[in-house]
Amino acid sequence: MRLEPRQSRPLLLVFLLPALALLTAGVICALLVMLSGASPFQVFGLMIKGALGSQFAFLETLTRATPLIFTGLAVAVAFRAKLWNIGAEAQLYIGAVMTVVLGTGLLPLPWPALIPVLMFSAALGGALVLAVPTFLKTRFGVDEVVTTLLLNFIVLLFVSMLLEGPLKDPMGLGWPQSKKVVADAQLPKLVQGKRLHAGFVIAILAAMLVWVFDRRAALGYEMRAVGYNSKAAAFAGIPVNPVLAKTALLSGGLAGLAGWSEVSGLKGNLTLDLSPGFGYTGIVVAMLALLHPLGVVVAAIFVAAVFVGADAMSRSAGVPSYIAHVMVALSLLCMVTAIMFTRYRVRWT
């Protein structure tokens, strides 16, 4: 068996194979559901109902999608330049730390000034977290996969230290949590009385900006060139290391915004369970979106729907909600396989 690059990519294949990939992931999950003794049709029905079946469910899905859009964009931007940022989780948490450090009363600003300041600081915090492994990569040749992964653990311990030390809320009844951000730092809700907040709109705007930037700005082109073939890019006069550094700032900044939006829009304060792995799930979102900024929005909503739907289903059908994580991981593996088959054809020899 050998693989040959396809001369042309039939449009049918480009749509059919990813659909087939998601179907495969669904079928495998259905088998796993059957192990629990439940009927897969009933379980999937409950999941769809729990994710999209009512206004409440749909808004909840969009709320869950918001941080995933940010982390998905962060990963997509980095992966396009072949900067393997597996540390969006850490960048998210530092973004959240910046938000609570500055947003709990330190800056006496009205909201039109405070919110942009917090956004900028959160993005800067996240950007700096990714700048370190990127510097180690460009300067010393240290693989950024391992350093970004290890930084996730370091940052989480650092946050835990802050929450039991300087950032601890004295009124928090001993729980390791920060104070709530002031009213001027909070994002308005999009629907009265529901959890969906303005962070969702900003996430969509961010996706559109990244898309325009990717298409129109010289740096967007250079990032893709570095990712496609860094040697050729260097030969063509593109300064590879500075481009990687700028990619890191953009990617880390986007992940930092995820932390800001979760604190300012949803939770109000910082706790150690602010993110149930949004950074890692961002990798899946970015890959499902084929690293396309606008695709990230769609993929984030899909992944969020799986999680929200599984939570609702688990309450009523009793199948463990971890089935959502299995489904998301399977979707990732099936999707990267499917994409490969849109680019290569199999020749049996």
Partner: peptide, 19 residues
């Protein structure tokens, strides 16, 4: 044989096995 990205596949295997 399929030549997929070792980074992405590895992370995928970790996510799948853990979940």
């Amino acid at each position: 044989p399929l030549g997929l990205s070792q980074h992405v596949t590895g992370i995928g295997v970790t996510l799948l096995a853990t979940s």
